[in-house]
Simulated assay, not measured.
Amino acid sequence: MQSLLLLLLEVHLAYAGTHTYQYFYTATSGLPNFPEFVAVGMVNGEQINYYDSSTMEALVKADWVKGIVDPTEWKNIWLGTQQWYKASVPILKNRFNQSDAGVHTVQNMYGCEWDDETGATNGFNQHGYDGEDFLNLDLKDLRWISPVQQGLITTQKWNNNKANLEGRKQYLNTVCIEWLKKYVQYGKSSLEKTVSPQVSLLQKDHSSSVTCHATGFYPSGVTITWMNNGQEHHEDVEVGELLPNEDGTFQKTSTLRVTPDEWKKNKFSCVVEHKGIIKEENEIRTNNGNSLPIGIIVGVVAAVVLLIVMAGIGYKIYQKKKGFKPVNGSDDGSNSSAHAEPHA
Score class of each variant (00 low, 15 high):
Lys66Pro: 01
Thr155Val: 15
Gln156Glu: 11
Met1Arg: 10
Lys162Pro: 00
Asn229Glu: 12
Gly187Arg: 01
Leu191Ile: 01
Gly329Tyr: 02
Phe217Asp: 02
Ile48Gln: 02
Arg143Gly: 03
Thr154Ser: 11
Cys112Gly: 14
Asp261Asn: 12
Tyr23Cys: 10
Asn76Asp: 02
Asn335Cys: 10
Lys169Tyr: 00
Leu306Glu: 15
Lys181Ser: 05
Gly329Asp: 09
Gly248Pro: 09
Ser146Thr: 15
Ile297Phe: 15
Glu241Gln: 15
His343Val: 03
Met56Gln: 13
Ile177Phe: 01
Gly329Asn: 06
Asp138Ala: 09
Gly299Asp: 08
Val301Cys: 09
Gly216Gln: 13
Asp130Val: 07
Ala214Leu: 07
Val298Trp: 13
Val38Gln: 09
Val195Ala: 14
Gln156His: 04
Glu280Asn: 08
Ser207Arg: 14
Lys157Trp: 02
Glu281Thr: 10
Glu36Met: 09
Ala39Arg: 03
Asn282Val: 05
His274Asn: 07
Asp138Thr: 05
Lys322Pro: 00
Val239Leu: 11
His206Trp: 11
Thr28Asp: 06
Asp205Ile: 05
Gly30Val: 08
Ala14Glu: 04
Glu117Phe: 08
Tyr218Leu: 11
Leu137Asp: 05
Asn288Lys: 07
Gln149His: 12
Val11Phe: 00
Asn282Asp: 13
Thr81His: 02
Lys322Ala: 07
Asn136Gln: 13
Asn288Thr: 12
Leu13His: 07
Leu92Asp: 01
Gln198His: 07
Leu9Tyr: 10
Ala16Trp: 09
Asn228Asp: 06
Glu241Ile: 14
Gly276Met: 12
Ile91Gly: 00
Asn335Ser: 14
Ala87Asp: 09
Glu273Ile: 06
Gly276Gln: 05
Leu59Arg: 12
Lys61Cys: 14
Gly323Cys: 11
Glu262Trp: 02
Asn159Ile: 01
Val237Asn: 05
Trp84Asn: 13
Thr249Pro: 12
Val300Gly: 07
Gln198Pro: 03
Ser146Asp: 07
Val258Lys: 05
Val103Tyr: 04
His343Pro: 00
Thr259Asp: 13
Ala14Arg: 02
Gly131Cys: 10
Gln319Trp: 12
Glu73Cys: 01
Leu4His: 13
Ala214Ser: 09
Lys322Tyr: 14
Asp332Thr: 10
Thr225Ser: 12
Asn49Ala: 08
Tyr129Ala: 06
Tyr218Cys: 04
Lys321Tyr: 14
Ser207Asn: 13
Lys264Pro: 04
Leu142Ile: 09
Leu31Gln: 12
Thr72Arg: 01
Gly102Thr: 08
Trp78Ser: 00
Val199Ile: 10
